[in-house]
Design a protein around this nucleic acid. Sequence first.
DNA 1: AATCTTAGCGTATTTTTTACGCTAAGATTG
DNA 2: CAATCTTAGCGTAAAAAATACGCTAAGATT
Lengths: 234, 234
Amino acid sequence: MNLNPHISVDCVIFGFSEGTLKVLLIEREKVKGHQLRGHRLKLPGSLISEQEDLDTSATRTLTELTGLKDIFLKQYAVFGDPQRLKPPEDLEWLRRTSGVKVDRVVTVAYYSLIKISDSAITEKTIWHPVDKLPELIFDHNHIVMEALLNLRNEFRDKPLCFELLPKKFTLRQLQDIFESILNITLDSRNFRKKIRKLNYLTALPEKEKNVNHKPAKLYKFDRHRYEKNETPLI
Amino acid sequence: MNLNPHISVDCVIFGFSEGTLKVLLIEREKVKGHQLRGHRLKLPGSLISEQEDLDTSATRTLTELTGLKDIFLKQYAVFGDPQRLKPPEDLEWLRRTSGVKVDRVVTVAYYSLIKISDSAITEKTIWHPVDKLPELIFDHNHIVMEALLNLRNEFRDKPLCFELLPKKFTLRQLQDIFESILNITLDSRNFRKKIRKLNYLTALPEKEKNVNHKPAKLYKFDRHRYEKNETPLI
DNA sequence: AATCTTAGCGTATTTTTTACGCTAAGATTG
DNA sequence: CAATCTTAGCGTAAAAAATACGCTAAGATT
């Protein structure tokens, strides 16, 4: 595939587990006969290929690097600082792995949210908590932080929370996600009251299992009903 | 200046007058000894230069093409369809005016809002109503429509309306902008009630003049006070 | 059997939103 | 110059939404 050495795409994939928001990182691939120096972790991303649309590039890259398929990616920003490909050893690595003469690269950034559990992810990928990221290659820390800002903004209006939850979930799980991502606390009794009024969250005739307290009902999200009125959850 | 032939910036500048939202367009410059064919109007924009940041490129371009200075530009999207530089005669025009071998160009789009009145704008610029744009060069119609979507989303949360109003304005003018841009109707009595509760809108000891009805008080926006609580207007 | 944790429903109060009545000020009209 | 027209500007009442918090229930743990 003919790479365009001036433009790249990067994907910030969020997931949620153990009460914290995580980001999918990949280990930088090794170059033969070349000592791996510089930063070890990066976002899934690559140069786009010549005749490829940006969105297509992003989804393709994500699949190639992580195994993730059919993920909706949202373009949220572009990063074009002429000095962003620092330090020199990291740039050198990019030149060797891409095989093209890379100089300045403007990168188009995408983010998405997925359920960590049911994602068939290749090796060399790591789910890392967002709030204590290690130093990543190039300006990838910055790219993640900007993605987080965009995520928080969208989170109140759109039903993004269900992307992070399993198909069947308890109201407690739902509340936890809101509290954790928006960094707020909610009164669970009032939270549930609101939920009850929404017709797009339907209780199943099932309960959670293996919890050491009263098991809660499982709910599911009815996207079809949601799209009829789009009332936000909170 | 050394142009980068792969990346450009485009600016969608919104203004408001006579009750409608307008966009700033410029006439395509003529190329010597070359018949001007294709589309006549375009957004202010150009290829970025090699060692220039994207935001810097955008503000510089805007100043060069329209005379506008110190305008806050918001990056909102990137357009990278490999086929976006159609039709051939428009691409040919771009090649001649830029003087570089242009093939595929990914463009980074920005938008802003300004008061039409106090903007010292060069000739060859045209304020055109957004709701009935003529056909523009390349994918510029699409770029404007996306900017409009982003504008509407931001309009509810942020005090963008004051960018479109003169320093002193009446509540009627304020209401008109909301109604027109968000495409809603507001009860003016309830609207005013809300306004009265906001401490960042202060009435001046002045009234509007030369209107053929009861003159309204003039108000001003106190940005400093706004930033203390950021309560949205509606 | 007592205790602990979270589920789950309810009621009372406050705050916000919505609907709409009414007077006031100035320009216009016959 | 009085009647009329338009928009400004204040208010009240009802409806809806948000908040605070009491209480019982179900299952696991001790």
